[in-house]
């Protein structure tokens, strides 16, 4: 037998994973791995979790570090930009120009660039899309395919509205003088929000694919996990916007 230390450590680790039971009933089917399985006798799943769901969570964990780095970059770039702008660095002064730049210098803040009511509205739209997403998932689970399509379409639509808002915002900012190459703030702002926008766009594509599957009758209760996975991704993107909205827009 292995020595007792090993057993104790085993208990600790299993406990950390949240195990309260022995793995007695782990005869689950493979619930989403693309491992080739035999019917009713899928590969043994050690922790009884779905492979796909586990993988999605790991991916989202990885994304935390990605957006963390982008947000830090934005904050640092903003601070450095403002410092140089206020100090009158001629390579920075005039890169935005007009009233907005004057206001920025006066307030020592990038706030004059933003249109808070507009962004609040688009934040609300994205929050709402999270609601429609969970409702879509619930509808699929309950076999209510008609409603699931409605909610999926609503989610995709709300996401598209958000992207439309972002495109509008970018064009407006660009017209007001904030360019990607002009200064640090522009580079960092467009990169951070653009990265988020790309994630939303990716989500919309996935939702559209789900809609196609659903309309062909291939998205039924046994596939609810697929919807849940897309949902996880979608909510994560929403969470990131919750952070961006507060950190970038509201905190000067």
């Amino acid at each position: 037998m292995a020595d007792t230390t090993t057993d104790i450590a085993d208990d600790i680790v299993d406990d950390a994973m949240g195990s309260t039971h022995d793995l007695t009933n782990d005869d689950h089917n493979d619930h989403g791995g693309d491992h080739g399985e035999d019917h009713g006798h899928g590969p043994h799943l050690s922790l009884g979790l779905s492979n796909m769901k586990l993988a999605m969570w790991l991916f989202l964990g990885s994304e935390c570090l990605l957006f963390g780095a982008l947000i830090s970059t934005y904050l640092l770039s903003k601070v450095n930009f403002l410092q140089e702008l206020v100090a009158g660095n001629p390579y920075v002064v005039g890169t935005i120009g007009g009233e907005i730049e004057v206001e920025m210098i006066a307030q020592n803040s990038v706030e004059p660039m933003f249109d808070i009511p507009f962004t609040s509205a688009s934040s609300f739209v994205l929050l709402m899309s999270s609601l429609t997403m969970v409702l879509a998932h619930k509808a699929v689970l309950e076999g209510d395919y008609r409603n699931s399509r409605v909610w999926l379409a609503a989610t995709a639509l709300l996401g598209s509205v958000f992207i439309g808002g972002q495109v509008y915002e970018f064009t407006a900012f660009y017209r007001e003088g904030l360019t990607y190459t002009g200064n640090l703030f522009g580079s960092a702002f467009y990169t951070l929000t653009g990265f988020h926008g790309l994630h939303v766009t990716g989500g919309i594509v996935m939702l559209a694919a789900l809609l196609i599957l659903s309309s062909r009758g291939k998205l039924q209760a046994d596939r609810a996990e697929t919807v849940e996975l897309v949902g996880l991704y979608w909510h994560f993107v929403d969470i990131v916007w919750v952070l961006i909205f507060t950190i970038v827009y509201l905190i000067p």
């Binding site: 950390a16 994973m17 949240g18 195990s19 039971h21 922790l47 009884g48 979790l49 769901k53 586990l54 969570w57 790991l58 989202l60 964990g61 990885s62 935390c64 570090l65 957006f67 963390g68 780095a69 947000i71 830090s72 904050l75 640092l76």
Partner: peptide, 25 residues
């Protein structure tokens, strides 16, 4: 069963990100 693993994965990533980037800042 073991669903807490998702939570720990995510929380670990968040804590890591906050700690590391806060230090940088």
């Amino acid at each position: 069963l073991h669903g807490r693993l998702f939570w720990w994965t995510f929380v670990a990533a968040i804590i890591l990100a906050v700690a590391v980037y806060f230090t940088v800042f």
